Simulated scan of single mutants.
Amino acid sequence: MRKMNEMPKTEQPREKALMYGITALSNMELLAIMLRTGTKEKNVLDCASELLDRSGGLSGLPRLSLGDLCTVSGISKVKAIQLQACFELVQRISAEELSADSIMEHPDKFEEWLRIRLGATMQEELLVIYLNKAKQILGMETVFRGTIDSAAVSPREIFRSALSRHARYLILVHNHPSGNLTPSSQDLNFTSRMIEAGNTMGIDVMDHLIVSQNGISSILSSRQFCSV
């Protein structure tokens, strides 16, 4: 193993950033700066490389659990939490950027954010996105974790939150860890209940999206929902 202080300054991430600017660094070098130190067996660049391999690339980093991160050389629980905090900040920055404009103006950006947020999550989550009349995001919240069951998720609570935010539209989003984008009978029943409740409240359900590593599908546009 080559020690960091034995490398030319142009190959040391912090020194390279000082000389050429942070944008000159590779993904591995940026991660190395966040990790700060390596181990006796691996320098920090090797640890950063192992982390990228474990996540399957940059987009997979936010999906790693605390336990996953701690299996990487040189990453303690403290470092793992620091990394998760950085990943969460990136997602929140992206969410704020989405909130600035109508999601209809940037559908690709919106879908990419959803894939990062939910695509590889190993437990089902139901995310509700609240929008105003201009279809700008007012806020979002995870209202349920676990298999979606119409008996377990209360439309009343969701619409109560929507009213408190003065929302005009809702987008429902949940993930399928299996990768299957076909809506289940529970998905279809829950979507129908939400649309019916929204009609009485004057709040439209714009869509119910299923997200997985394989992509995104719309329940409202699906053949299964149209035949319900």
Rank of each mutant, 00 (worst) to 15 (best):
K3S: 07
S102V: 09
L118Q: 03
L61C: 14
R165G: 03
T71A: 06
S26W: 01
C70G: 07
I75A: 11
T200W: 01
K40R: 14
D101G: 08
C86N: 10
I203D: 09
V128Y: 01
A32N: 03
E29K: 00
E50V: 09
L98W: 02
N189S: 12
I203K: 02
D53M: 07
I116L: 05
R117V: 05
G119D: 15
L25K: 05
S221C: 12
L131T: 08
G56P: 08
R168D: 13
I75R: 03
A100N: 08
S55Q: 12
R92D: 13
T191N: 05
F144T: 06
M194P: 01
I81H: 09
C86S: 11
G57T: 12
L52C: 14
Q136L: 05
N132L: 04
L25F: 03
Q224I: 11
H176M: 08
D187V: 12
H208T: 07
S59T: 15
L31A: 11
D187P: 00
S99D: 07
F144G: 03
R165A: 10
R156L: 03
P107Q: 02
V72C: 14
E29W: 00
E29T: 11
V173C: 04
I171S: 04
V228Q: 06
Y169F: 04
L127C: 10
A80C: 05
K133P: 00
N199C: 08
K77V: 14
G60E: 01
L31S: 04
Q12G: 09
L35M: 14
T182G: 02
S185H: 07
K40A: 09
E15D: 13
L58N: 06
